[in-house]
Structure formats: structure tokens, C-alpha cells
């Protein structure tokens, strides 16, 4: 490992994806997730493709996590030390990911239309979505969207979310995209 500091700010948390191969045995998934949590990684999602097998007859698992670049190195090392087969580690597969919040009359303004229009107008795809129940008589609810965008198209994706939200009078809480040095 080189001694020079990594590109960008070493303290900046960003989304990373690791693809793992697990043996189909009880406790294997937990065994794979523990090194991530123990080394400061914040688990975002786990995609466990139980139905399909890798060429080596194992189960592919894709884990999205958030941590600093330095923590990520430690996480990958710890996974390998724990005997977990790491097939791919890095941020390159998804390019960039951003999370946004939407608030307002989400249901009353056709939520599925909102989502499909966000996906249509950019190269972004909605990889995760959570919605709260409507609150009170005004029909206000909130949603959290995680968008995966290709490298360099995060701003275009956010512009699109803003436009769709403006039109439907929804409020957007955008992520703070830092590091414009």
C-alpha cells in the first residue's frame, strides 16, 4: 500500500459496492457482513441472489456500503481475512450514487409516475426506495430514493429530480455533494 494519501478527502464517506461469493451454508452471510460493520462500514443494501450460482457453484451476494476510502480498504482486507471470497470491490460498477428525500403529496401526485419520470429523464436508476405513511389530512408523506447514476451524471440526475418535484409541488431534500476543490 502506498503511503501517499488517497485521492480526494480521506474522511469523506461514499458508497462502495462489493461482490462476494458465499458457500451455501448457514451463517455464511452473517459471517460476511460482520467484518463490514466491525470496520466502520454502514450497510446500505444486501442483494442475496439465492437462486443463481457463480461458475464455481457459489452464491453471489452484492453488498452496498458506505464508508471512507480508508475504511473501505480495511473492510476488504477484513473480508478476505475472514475467508470470504471478494470478487469485486470498488465504486466503479454503479458509478455514483446519491440519496434524496421527497416530501409532500407523494401518493396524490402519482408516485409511480414520479419515479418513472425520474428514471426516464436521466441515466439514473432508482436502486432503493422507502416511503412513509401519509400523515394527517393533508396527505403529506416522505420518500427516500437512492439513485445510481453513471459517472459524472449525478448533477443531471438531481436537476431532473428537482424539475419533476417542482412540477408536482413536492419538496426535495438534496444530498450535499462535497469536495468541489
Amino acid at each position: 500500500m502506498s503511503e501517499s494519501p488517497p485521492e480526494g478527502d480521506a474522511d469523506e464517506r461514499q458508497a462502495h459496492t462489493v461482490r462476494l461469493e458465499l458457500v451455501d451454508e448457514p451463517g455464511e452471510l452473517l459471517n460476511a457482513l460482520r467484518p463490514i460493520a466491525e470496520n466502520g462500514g454502514n450497510l446500505l443494501s444486501v442483494f442475496h441472489e439465492r437462486g443463481s450460482l457463480t461458475p464455481r457453484g457459489r452464491i453471489p451476494v452484492e453488498v452496498d456500503l458506505e464508508c471512507t476510502p480508508r475504511q473501505f480498504e480495511t473492510v476488504v482486507e477484513a473480508l478476505r481475512e475472514a475467508g470470504v471470497n471478494v470478487i469485486q470491490a470498488g465504486t466503479e460498477r454503479y458509478g455514483e450514487e446519491v440519496t434524496v428525500l421527497l416530501a409532500g403529496a407523494l401518493v396524490g401526485t402519482d408516485l409511480s409516475d414520479t419515479l418513472s419520470r425520474i428514471e426516464e429523464c436521466t441515466s439514473a436508476s432508482v436502486v432503493d426506495f422507502s416511503l412513509t405513511d401519509e400523515q394527517g389530512a393533508d396527505g403529506v408523506s416522505s420518500a427516500r430514493l437512492r439513485l445510481a447514476a453513471t459517472e459524472g451524471s449525478v448533477n443531471a440526475a438531481l436537476d431532473c429530480v428537482r424539475d419533476v418535484a417542482d412540477e408536482k409541488e413536492l419538496h426535495v431534500v438534496e444530498p450535499l455533494v462535497e469536495g468541489e476543490a
Binding site: 422507502s130 412513509t132 403529506v140 416522505s142 427516500r144 419538496h171 431534500v173 450535499l176 468541489e180 476543490a181
Partner: peptide, 26 residues
Amino acid sequence: RDVPSSALELAAEDGRTVRLIGEVTA
């Protein structure tokens, strides 16, 4: 004013929170 507490809950579930941020870009 338009940030409902439900939005803050969703943010918290994801290890995030909301702050009123002022920004002057390059």
C-alpha cells in the same frame, strides 16, 4: 418549514440526517 419529521426518520434509517446548509461554490 417543508421538511416533515417523516423525512427525517427516513434519513435516519439510512444513517443520514438533514441540515440547513449554506453553500458558495467555486
